[in-house]
């Protein structure tokens, strides 16, 4: 898929569409504890926005993420998830036990949305980056082997 198939109509409608798709993905991520949503859905939405950008405007689109960057981002997302688990180990809790974070709150349960938000960010980055990496790897055209 090296050649984009954008035309003037697709290009103009894309300019209005993709920022809203990406914004909606971020909304689904941040609002995931209070309404339907969460990390996996937000990752799929962000990936779809970026894949649309690549389909219509090609590699030089400003939303584009290259395959190598996507692999690095996938590792980073998994690292964020595991890092939140390890952070709770430092304050002598279990892995992914969010109640032990040393912050001033009224009740211990109010710390849980913070931890959930942290791991959802990791899941979002991982899922979006993996979808982009799979797309990039499958549509890469080359003559080796």
């Amino acid at each position: 898929m090296n050649k984009p198939f954008g035309s003037i109509v697709l290009d103009i409608s894309f300019r209005y569409l993709v920022p809203f798709i990406l914004m909606y993905g971020i909304y689904v991520l941040i609002h995931g504890e209070y309404s339907p949503g969460g990390g996996f859905q937000a990752g799929a939405l962000l990936a779809i926005g970026i894949i649309l950008a690549r389909l219509i405007q090609g590699e030089e689109s400003s939303f584009n993420i290259s395959g190598d960057t996507a692999v690095i981002l996938a590792g980073l997302g998994t690292l964020i998830f595991a890092g939140v688990g390890v952070i709770s180990l430092i304050w002598s809790g279990n892995v992914l036990e969010y109640g032990v974070f040393p912050l001033n709150v009224h009740k211990e349960s109010e710390l849980h949305p913070l931890g959930i938000l942290g791991i959802e960010i990791g899941v979002t980055i991982c899922v979006a980056a993996v979808i982009i990496a799979i797309y990039d790897a499958l549509t890469r055209r080359d003559d080796a082997i």
Partner: peptide, 8 residues
């Protein structure tokens, strides 16, 4: 999501 990545 896992089915998506296995399909990939």
């Amino acid at each position: 999501v896992v089915s998506l990545s296995t399909t990939g």
